[in-house]
Amino acid sequence: MDIRVLGPGPTSPFLSARDLFETEHDLSLPVHVQLRDDPDERTWAAHYDDRHVLNISRQAASSAMARELALHEFAHMARHEQEHPSHTQSTEEVLYLALAGKSVERRKLSHCYQIANHMKDIYADDITLSVGPGEKLLSFLESGLAAAVADRPETPSRPGLQRLSASADPEITAVNAAFALALAERHDLVDEDHRLYDLAYAAAMDAPEVDFEEFKRRFRELAREPDASTYRQVLVDATRSYVGGGATRAAD
């Protein structure tokens, strides 16, 4: 596996991630690591005919999660080379199939893309967690979910009313919580008394219109090697479930 770090910055996290990755997998194309100055730049992978590119901020590359972030992106690259349905299925096609003739809020459409990305991440992390430990990933999921529910007010603004995840859109926060818990359960990362359960159920309580348990089941029980048709239908069903009553029939 050929990896090249472009520009000044740490190299050891990427080389360490490569060594872990190569215990079970390999990539046909070289990987170019592009270190970016923007500390808010999220880590993401791009794919070209002759290479993969791992985009990551210098800050993230110097963090305690750097190796795990790199390993996760290597896993996405592997799924891309495998032409896994989760990484070849067009989200736009799924939205057309799921929502044809319906009018949907823009924010809900953006959330549907996030649901598709969660499914991609499940399949990438099936690889990630087959070659590396899950403790840091679990801590990452826990801290992210804790941040989403951290703004819960001390006292309700009205009797019986208490928002549990005021800092973020509660509906997609509930789906994100379902994803985090599903991934942890899929790979046996948590005991039944782990704090992640309390955080996830707090997020779920703030969005009763989202079927939290159903989304957790959808994510956790994704077939390991689905065919393209099966995967497309799973994503169509998840999209319809999330949009639910929020979609209305478009005018003719």
Rank of each mutant, 00 (worst) to 15 (best):
E192W: 07
L145W: 01
E105G: 11
I127L: 15
Y123T: 05
D252G: 11
P10Y: 08
A98Q: 07
Y197I: 08
T91W: 03
R107H: 14
A17K: 04
G244N: 06
L97G: 06
A150F: 07
S165T: 12
R36T: 13
V234W: 00
E154V: 07
Q89A: 13
L196A: 03
S229M: 08
P85L: 09
T11N: 13
T155P: 03
H84M: 07
V149K: 02
S167N: 12
E24K: 14
F212S: 02
V234L: 15
G246I: 01
L164F: 11
E225N: 12
G144F: 04
S16F: 05
E81W: 13
V175G: 01
M77R: 02
Q162R: 15
G101Y: 10
Y113S: 04
D227C: 06
T155G: 06
D198P: 03
E185Q: 10
V104M: 07
N176T: 11
P85M: 09
L138R: 08
T128V: 06
D252K: 12
A64L: 07
P10C: 13
L235Y: 06
H194P: 03
R152I: 13
P226F: 03
D2V: 03
E83Y: 14
R217P: 01
L54K: 05
V243C: 04
R186G: 01
F21L: 12
Q82E: 14
A61L: 08
S165I: 03
R220S: 04
P133K: 09
S167A: 15
H47Q: 11
R67D: 01
Q162P: 00
A147D: 06
Q89C: 07
D237I: 08
A177L: 04
D40Y: 08
N117H: 09
D37F: 05
R4N: 11
T155Q: 13
A247P: 02
H87P: 01
E135C: 06
L199T: 00
E225Y: 09
R163I: 14
E73I: 09
E81L: 12
V190P: 03
S57I: 08
T91F: 04
H111C: 00
L161W: 12
R152P: 06
D227M: 08
A70N: 02
D252Y: 14
Q233D: 14
V190H: 01
I3P: 00
P39Y: 07
E221R: 08
Y231Q: 04
D37E: 15
A182Y: 03
Y197A: 05
G144E: 07
S167K: 09
L235Q: 12
P85T: 05
V94A: 05
Q233M: 15
H80L: 11
R158W: 04
H25K: 09
A60S: 11
Y231W: 06
S12E: 15
E41G: 05
E105K: 15
P208V: 01
V149E: 00
H80W: 12
N176C: 03
A148K: 09
F14V: 14
H76I: 08
E73N: 05
E22R: 14
P208Y: 05
V236W: 00
W44V: 09
L35V: 13
Q233H: 15
Y123N: 05
H32P: 01
